[in-house]
Design a protein around this nucleic acid. Sequence first.
DNA 1: TTGATATTTCAATAATTGTTGTATAGTTGC
DNA 2: GCAACTATACAACAATTATTGAAATATCAA
Lengths: 124, 124
Amino acid sequence: MDKQLATTIFESLASGVRLDVYRLLVKNAPNGLVAGEIATQLALPPTNLSFHLKALTQAGLLSVVQEGRYQRYRANLAVMRDLIGYLTAECCTGHPEQCFETDAAAGCCDAKPTLSSTPTDSTS
Amino acid sequence: MDKQLATTIFESLASGVRLDVYRLLVKNAPNGLVAGEIATQLALPPTNLSFHLKALTQAGLLSVVQEGRYQRYRANLAVMRDLIGYLTAECCTGHPEQCFETDAAAGCCDAKPTLSSTPTDSTS
DNA sequence: TTGATATTTCAATAATTGTTGTATAGTTGC
DNA sequence: GCAACTATACAACAATTATTGAAATATCAA
């Protein structure tokens, strides 16, 4: 994970449409969905969906395989895991006691609710 | 965390400049830095930095307090934690065995390297 | 007060991104 | 071969975002 890739990934998720697409595929992991199913569920014109699927795929967030005349898209969860690592890897240098309490992504499947509402200190 | 906020946060990080700023402040949590220090470290014109700081702050990723004639910016780690939860909360419905292995954000401070191929690059 | 410092706001411009319709390419089944 | 279906590529236009310098606001120090 380098800066260029991280920026590309954030750009990919910085659109309501693409965020919907990505989350839909996270929810439907690991089977994924074919393009037409995504278009139907999100009520998007195929041209526009294709534009956004391309962006997500080029960022590495999705992978795609051909199945006959269909294209099946899947969320690439490992990339998200690496992105989170990139954001948090250097945090709080010299002050570990102030860090994330996380557990964070463990909210997935392990369903540890320890994090959802606990505020750290706060400034606001 | 709703879709609008998540999109705003991703937009905030979808710029090389803002990603640099945010990571610099994560690294310098919890003390934060004043605007001039950020400008110096990242070699940015103050006008441009102010533009990006405003975007990050409005997204909730940073908080700011006035210290005399300085403005001190800090990364709001709780927001990032919630964002990660938003992305992963519904993943793999019905197929938990295919999920994130994470641990992910625990890379912070706990420094469990179990998850990533490449830990960091750290050059901005 | 005056002058220096720190940061933001404003306005103009440059650059990028999103959406849509039409056209194209590949797959299936007859 | 042909026609129907799935999806992507291209082109035009609309909309948004990034960058910069000049001016404004606020604080500090004498």
